[in-house]
Simulated assay, not measured.
Amino acid sequence: MLTLTLRNPLKLTWKGGDVVVKHVKEVANLTGISIRTLHYYDEIGLLSPATSETGYRLYTNDDIEKLQQILFFKALDFPLKKIKNILGRPDFNQLEALHYQKERLVEKKERLETIIATIDQTIQNVKGERTMTDQEKFKGLDFSQNPYEQEARKKFGDEAINQSSQKLKSLNSVEKDVLEQSFHAIYQNLAKLRHGSPASEEAQNAIHEWYDFLNNNIGYHYTLEAFQGLGQMYIEDERFTKNIDQYGEGLALFMRDAMTVYVDRNK
């Protein structure tokens, strides 16, 4: 194991010479990633920087480059587990990865540009400036497969997803609106609490409300184990993380931690 000695806040001295480093707060400010998320990356072994004798995380240039790779893969909606496996391979080649990422992101860009063009044409259609065919109205909008549903089926099985789908389809528009409002209210409340302790009474009450909401409205009963697995998926699958964090940066991780505490206390 490499032994590093802290000489000053910005340099580490080791056998090969001086290496410029950044503290976790500097990396958070540089990238816009929350400190909590960087700590989680360390926790799961995705990005584990060296530490000083006093326990401070110290990010070298290599760590920054690795973080850049992580974010490139995240931009392609890769789950964290897959990113960890890719970067951990002994034959991982950064240059090959960059070419691959560029190709996939260009494809994603082209698809988004197609969707934007469809929106522009739809605006013209609504204004009466042009007439769109039905095929043109859905150009770029091929959602024949739901990646969330596929992931959920792998995690919880077809029975749980089928029951949930049947339950939601049986609701009328008013019932769906009420359900959606309740959903948003729970997430907004959790977002207000995310900077505090996930084990606090307020956080645990809010998570209990989420647990009851799922079991009372989705058409499937979540055991405590399934509930904890759902929380883990919030941070392992970047697609879920991205959607949940729309309510507040770091909410997905906070919910995972609060759900884990809830399960431990209610076993």
Score class of each variant (00 low, 15 high):
Ile86Asn: 09
Leu71Thr: 05
Glu65Asp: 12
Ile119His: 08
Glu110Pro: 07
Gln68Pro: 00
Gln135Tyr: 04
Met132Ala: 10
Gln94Pro: 11
Phe92Val: 12
Gln135Glu: 15
Glu136Pro: 00
Phe138Thr: 12
Leu98Trp: 00
Phe78Asn: 01
His99Gln: 05
Ala117Asp: 15
Asn93Glu: 10
Lys127Trp: 01
Pro90Trp: 00
Leu71Ala: 03
Ile119Thr: 11
Ile115Asn: 09
Asp91Leu: 09
Thr122Glu: 12
Glu129Gly: 02
Gln94Phe: 06
Leu71Gly: 02
Glu107Lys: 03
Gly140His: 08
Pro90Asp: 09
Glu107Asn: 06
Lys102Ile: 12
Ile70Pro: 02
Phe138Ser: 11
Val106Ala: 08
Glu129Arg: 11
Ile119Asn: 08
Leu76Phe: 00
Gly88Pro: 09
Glu107Leu: 05
Thr133His: 08
His99Lys: 10
Glu113Thr: 08
Pro90Tyr: 01
Pro79Ser: 07
Thr122His: 08
Lys81Cys: 06
Asn93Ala: 01
Leu80Lys: 01
Lys84Val: 03
Glu136Ser: 04
Asp120Asn: 14
Ile115Leu: 12
Asp120Phe: 01
Thr114Phe: 13
Val126Ile: 14
His99Ala: 05
Ile64Thr: 02
Glu96Arg: 07
Gly140Leu: 03
Gly88Thr: 10
Phe73Ala: 13
Lys74Tyr: 04
Arg130Leu: 14
Lys139Val: 13
Thr133Asn: 07
Ala97Met: 06
Leu87Ser: 03
Tyr100Gln: 06
Phe138Asn: 11
Leu80His: 04
Leu95Phe: 13
Leu67Ala: 00
Ile116Asn: 04
Val126Pro: 06
Gly128Ala: 09
Ile70Tyr: 02
Thr131Arg: 10
Phe73Gly: 01
Glu113Trp: 06
Leu67Asp: 00
Lys109Met: 13
Glu103Trp: 02
Lys66Pro: 00
Ala97Arg: 05
Asp77Arg: 01
Ile64Lys: 01
Asn125Arg: 05
Ile123Pro: 00
Glu107His: 05
Asp120Trp: 00
Glu136Cys: 04
Lys81Val: 06
Gln124Ala: 14
Arg111Trp: 13
Arg130Lys: 15
Phe92His: 08
Glu129Pro: 02
Thr122Pro: 02
Asn125Asp: 14
Ile83Pro: 01
Gly88Asn: 07
Thr114Gly: 15
Leu98His: 04
Glu110Asp: 13
Gly128Val: 10
Ala75Arg: 01
Gly140Ala: 04
Arg111Val: 12
Ile119Ser: 04
Asn125Thr: 15
Asn125Ile: 13
Phe92Leu: 10
Phe73Asp: 03
Arg104Gly: 03
Lys109Thr: 11
Glu136Gly: 01
Ile123Asn: 08
Lys82Asp: 15
Lys81Gln: 11
Val106Glu: 08
Ile115Tyr: 14
Glu96Gln: 05
Lys84Ser: 05
Lys137Ile: 14
Leu112Cys: 07
Thr114Lys: 13
Gly88Glu: 08
Gln135Arg: 07
Ile123Ser: 06
Ile86Trp: 06
Gly88Ser: 03
Lys137Trp: 11
Gly128Arg: 14
Phe138Lys: 05
Thr118Gly: 13
Glu129His: 11
Leu98Tyr: 00
Pro79Asp: 04
